[in-house]
Design a protein around this nucleic acid. Structure first.
Lengths: 223, 223
DNA sequence: TTTTTTTGTGAAGTGTTTGTGAAAAAAAGT
DNA sequence: ACTTTTTTTCACAAACACTTCACAAAAAAA
């Protein structure tokens, strides 16, 4: 769960970051709208905490840009005396706002609420037939018995599971799991898929290969 | 274990009651805040499941009343579109909330989690097999014999046992035990884990390493 | 069928992470 | 001030994970 914190004051960013980390959210920071825009376009961000008043590109402009292409929930921070006209056209359904000064606890409550509402709250485990993933424990079980996966295998499985029945290209997998700064070979994935399949034993065929594209985690919706 | 269910809709109370009873929780019901208040004052209640929107005395008012004198954990139920302002002042540490409609399974999971969490906040000792922690006494016993731990080792152990079966990253451990203002080396943890393991003797393998992440305190749930 | 492309896989090489003993630094006790 | 204990850092070995490569197998194209 990655939060993007956009505020020109480092102090505020730090406070938010600190509290967010107690809840195990990853955080990314940006000082202004331009910086934020670049981050949003290149990274997977689940929620944005946005100060309206900022230099370079202000929050509202940034917001308009973002909403054109993506649907990331936003929590808007604004000073108490700010013009509320500016808050016009901001989507109360997915977004929320908070006036400064705010209590960190309240912010956390909002974050939780929004993530839950947008269905992005990671449930703490996944289960399909005898395959079970315990996210907090970083553990995977097959028919009740734990199987040892390496980090990459685990991450791969998690990503597959959260994208059931969707064909994932090697590039996509590389970007999401290895990071956009990985410049290695595509085929590395094949090897990891091989290992993962081996470790999945009876469930190895849940991972199907999509020729010319990549792989797909297939589960039978009915029953 | 007694749960108080506060909701004006009998149907919802019944559903919750039914599910709660499958887990062998006793249940008490109240239709509104006033009724609930009386029950709380006269009976031992371990957890309250509270609908925010109710006639007579609404959930928030009731909550404020309760929190003045008692520290019973609360799970708050609220409709999806309710104003989040109302959630102000609700204690993220002990409480939780859920938006309607919710799955009974999820509610049960929350109940379990909260009871476990709050059950751990009060008791003054921890015990698993022959490993015992006496919190007030800052002492740890193995098979009845005290083992001497340094402060950091003790804190580390405490943090591990309050997070059983959860993989803890080095950063998390650093933040929680050393504090956010520690800018030293990650690997310091490794050394402390090493020493803690040594001191735990026969229980040294309760601390497993989660490669690429950190460490995990593993206990067998069953038995 | 033959050729080409793509994927599966074993194995080797490379790099990273962790365990550990010991030294250095810091804190506490005397 | 000196000793003792605790905490942190460091260095190196060992274990493990990751990547690459080469070739086999399979699928698609010609």
């Amino acid at each position: 769960m990655r939060l993007l914190i956009v505020d020109d004051e480092k102090l505020i960013r730090d406070v938010i970051k600190t509290y967010a980390e107690t809840e195990n959210y990853e955080t990314v920071e940006a000082e202004n709208g331009l910086e934020a825009l670049e981050i949003v376009q290149n990274q997977k961000i689940d929620l944005i905490i946005l100060d309206i008043m900022m230099p370079k590109m202000d929050g509202m402009t940034f917001l308009e840009e973002i909403k054109k292409t993506q649907n990331i929930p936003v929590i808007i921070l604004s000073a108490r005396n700010e013009e509320y006209d500016k808050l016009r056209g901001f989507d109360l359904g997915t977004d929320d706002y908070l006036t400064k000064p705010f209590s960190p606890k309240e912010l956390l409550a909002r974050i939780k609420a929004i993530l839950k509402r947008s269905g992005k709250m990671t449930p703490d485990n996944y289960e399909y037939k005898g395959l079970k993933i315990d996210y907090p424990g970083h553990a995977v079980y097959i028919d009740g018995k734990e199987i040892k996966l390496t980090l990459k295998e685990y991450e791969l499985l998690c990503y597959f599971v959260t994208n059931e029945n969707i064909a994932l290209s090697r590039n996509q997998l590389l970007n999401k799991i290895w990071g956009y700064d990985f410049f290695g070979d595509d085929r590395t994935i094949d090897t990891h898929v091989k290992m993962l399949r081996n470790n999945l034993g009876p469930y190895r065929n849940l991972i199907t290969t999509v020729r010319g594209v990549g792989y797909k985690f297939v589960v039978n919706e009915n029953e």
